[in-house]
């Protein structure tokens, strides 16, 4: 297994290099000049040149690219063009707020979706099944933006149940700000996931072992929870694991509209402000997590299903 992991990790290297090439090309080669805007209302061409040198943008492109690779390999990532903070600090301080929304949201989404998916699958073709599917499709069809805009106004302001906007860093204090963003994230997520889990369960329920279980006269809930869920574990793990790397990034829209100082928010700002070091570091970290996530998923496969062999 150790050899397997190492081989998979090595396969990730070209992909990561690809990611660095894409971001570098898009930003350093094709992107705009990030220097001018930093100089304020009035500057001189000499000021521009001096700042370009300060940012290391006066060097030939290949040198810039190698410096970028060097930074990545030392997990240094340089400094933000805009605030001059160390990008590593930005990443470290933004992950917490992002996770405090995405983790509970993923957990709730998955639990609710599996439950609804099972209910739907067991009542296949009946009214309740159809209602769940229709609701899910409808939920998916409303734009994310509408949930945010309307949620802030109707759910938070009109009722006063939730904080409208903001964040605090205390572990307890932050919660009052999190409910609404989590709720919206869950509503959007459930729409997608229910249909997926329903399909998984439907697929599973036609299998022979379930029929046998019923034939043995086992109670329905027991079949559901004990047998089916266990066998449906692989698609569930895949589905959840795909989402895991993106937990850290948070949701770009949710965070910036609710004022959550997470990484998604920072990212949106970085694109707006031409903060290239932040964009590049962020993309790289996410892609690395994504690749690592894939490997872990495969390992979990093997753990969940003895039939799967790692090759």
């Amino acid at each position: 297994m150790g050899a397997y992991v190492i081989r998979r990790l090595l396969q990730g290297v070209p992909i990561l290099i690809g990611v660095t090439l894409i971001t570098f090309t898009l930003l350093n080669v094709f992107g705009g000049d990030p220097v001018v805007a930093r100089l304020g209302k009035s500057s001189t061409l000499e000021d521009q040149a001096a700042l370009r040198a300060e940012y290391g943008l006066d060097k030939p492109l290949w040198q810039q690219y190698f410096r970028y690779l060097q930074e990545i390999s030392t997990f240094d990532f340089g400094r933000s063009f805009v605030t001059r903070e160390s990008v590593r600090d930005i990443l470290a301080s933004g992950a917490g707020p992002s996770l405090s929304i995405t983790m509970p949201a993923l957990l709730l989404t998955t639990l609710i979706s599996i439950t609804l998916g099972m209910i739907s699958a067991f009542n296949r073709g009946k009214a309740i099944d159809r209602a769940i599917v229709v609701l899910a499709v409808m939920g998916m069809s409303v734009s994310f933006l509408v949930y945010i805009v309307a949620g802030q106004y109707f759910v938070a302001f009109k009722t006063g149940w939730f904080q409208i906007y903001g964040y605090e860093s205390g572990l307890v204090e932050r919660w009052q700000y999190l409910y609404l963003p989590i709720l919206i994230q869950v509503i959007v997520g459930v729409g997608y996931d229910v249909r997926f889990y329903r399909a998984v369960m439907v697929d599973e329920s036609t299998k022979l072992y379930i029929v046998t279980a019923y034939a043995k006269g086992l109670p329905r809930w027991k079949v559901m929870f004990k047998h089916m869920l266990k066998n449906a574990l692989i698609p569930i793990i895949t589905r959840v694991m795909i989402a895991v790397p993106f937990l850290v990034t948070g949701s770009l829209l949710i965070e910036s509209f609710f004022g959550i100082p997470g990484l998604g928010h920072r990212m949106l700002a970085a694109i707006d402000e031409q903060d290239y070091p932040v964009i590049k570091a962020f993309t790289f970290v996410i892609s690395s997590l994504f690749i690592a996530g894939n490997i872990v998923t495969d390992l979990l496969y093997a753990a969940a299903d003895p039939r799967v062999r790692l090759r």
Binding site: V149, Q152, Y153, A156, F157, G160, I164, Y165, G166, S256, F257, F258, G259
Partner: peptide, 13 residues
């Protein structure tokens, strides 16, 4: 605040 709406709503609250 990056949006006016939540700022206004928070002030009114």
């Amino acid at each position: 605040f990056e949006q006016d709406q939540p700022m206004w709503l928070k002030f009114r609250a």
